[in-house]
Design a protein around this nucleic acid. Structure first.
Length: 411
DNA sequence: TCTGGGGTCCTAGGACCC
DNA sequence: TCTGGGGTCCTAGGACCC
């Protein structure tokens, strides 16, 4: 039997853009969009002033300028966002130790045990909003419900600066009018599939025979059924209890489509170094290397993986494996995007964090030396790429976490 | 003027071993 | 000459999340 829980979901509004506006008063109250530094970039986040013009995440810069010619474009700064995020998460920890960092700008809180101390969940919401706004000038939307699924749905219902409560007894009625695609876990494709069965709302989904869902969607089918009913007993998992990361990777869209093998290798080397660096920093080794390619036509992509007999995390070894995969591929078109990922991970748990910095440096120098000796020419370019010439490779992604290996602060 | 990047989970088929 | 299953690992691709 599920005990009545009180779960809160907090979503920072236009997080990256809000941080930038806070940082630069000249941007406040104005349409602002945060973009990547690479040539082929997109709108990562836009301020609410920009959204009023129709500027949305995922648009090209050109599209955004069409919608809003006076928009200020800011190249994202991952360190700033990671730092702010970590500070905000600390504020949340004042109210409960059960804080699950869901992304750089979202968190779940289990307040079931905290209500007695703070009177009510709504009061906690007001206190949180006030503190976050006071210290960081950032608004957030908060949802309160008996589980994570409904709390997330609730926080989505009023933006910006919203507070929405779904009480257990209200859940059924609320779900009746919510389209299935609004639930976290049901994307456009699944929503379309469900619509073919005449299922449009969550209410309809919950009433639909679960056997048919199971047959059509497999394991997901059962989950869909419970989602439609608003049932979700997944726990809020605090940072310390989170599962270990299962893969580490980087990918990048190139400035232009390329076919030249030397050029392709150069980019694979850079990606291998980024992946290796991150893996070594966190004392993790991987057995499987995946090389991803997206072709010029954007729609065609391939991923080829290879599992080795031992675990590696040296950039050079990753590079060698990725190169080997490339050699077995027939390239069909010029390449638009390249990616390198390390998975099948093993953690070196007996490493004291105290030594990790030292270890990291040793490994880094070691790897760079080897690369230099071995690959000559373009390594010099590569070294300078890493150290700043190639601003194009700054990583901007809302999928970061403020802590641990998913703090992707590579350049 | 085109369309970013870092992850997780699931499926389905094949290899291989007992 | 025809014919087993179960288990595990691996691979490629797709859907989903931020």
């Amino acid at each position: 039997m599920e005990k009545n829980r009180i779960i809160m979901h907090i979503d920072m509004n236009a997080f990256f853009a809000s941080v930038e506006q806070q940082n630069n008063p000249a941007l406040r109250g104005k349409p602002v969009a945060v973009i990547g530094s690479a040539k082929r970039t997109i709108i990562t986040t836009s301020s609410y002033e920009a959204r009023a013009y129709g500027v949305k995440t995922g648009m090209t810069v050109w599209e955004a300028k069409q919608k809003c010619p006076e928009i200020s474009l800011v190249v994202g700064d991952n360190r700033k966002y990671t730092y702010t995020s970590a500070q905000i998460m600390k504020i949340m920890l004042q109210f409960t130790p059960l804080v699950e960092v869901f992304s750089i700008d979202e968190a779940f809180l289990d307040l079931s045990g905290s209500i007695a101390l703070f009177t009510s969940a709504e009061r906690i919401a007001y206190l949180l909003k006030a503190q976050i706004n006071h210290h960081f000038g950032i608004h957030c939307s908060i949802g309160i419900a008996p589980n994570k699924l409904l709390a997330k749905l609730a926080s989505d219902m009023e933006k910006p600066d919203g507070l929405t409560v779904i009480r257990p007894e209200e859940a059924t009625e609320v779900l009746e009018r919510i389209p299935t695609g609004e639930l976290c876990g049901i994307g456009a494709k699944t929503a379309r599939q469900l619509a073919l069965y005449g299922i449009k709302s969550c209410g309809e989904l919950g009433r639909f025979p679960v056997e048919i869902l199971r047959k059509r969607f497999g394991i997901i089918g059962e989950r869909l059924h419970f989602m439609g009913l608003g049932v979700d007993d997944s726990p809020v998992i605090p940072a310390g209890d989170a599962e270990e990361v299962k893969s580490v990777g980087h990918s990048m869209t190139l400035e232009r489509d390329i076919s030249d093998r030397r050029e392709i290798l150069k980019n694979i080397l850079q990606l291998s170094e980024m992946v290796g660096r991150r893996a070594r920093r966190y004392n993790v080794y991987g057995k499987t290397i995946t090389l991803s390619i997206r072709y010029a036509d954007f729609d065609t992509s391939v991923g080829r993986q290879e599992t080795l007999s031992c675990h590696i995390n040296q950039s050079e070894d990753i590079y060698k494996a990725a190169t080997c995969i490339l050699d077995n591929l027939v390239l069909l078109q010029p390449i638009r995007l390249l990616g390198v990922r390390l998975s099948n991970l093993r953690y070196e748990s007996n490493q004291l964090p105290l030594f990790s910095e030292e270890r990291r440096k040793t490994f880094l120098v070691d790897a760079m030396d080897k690369v230099n000796n071995r690959y000559g020419d373009f390594t010099v370019t590569f070294g300078s790429l890493l150290d700043g010439n190639n601003k194009g490779s700054y990583v901007i992604s809302p999928a970061w976490r403020p802590d641990g290996i998913r703090n992707v602060d590579v350049k």
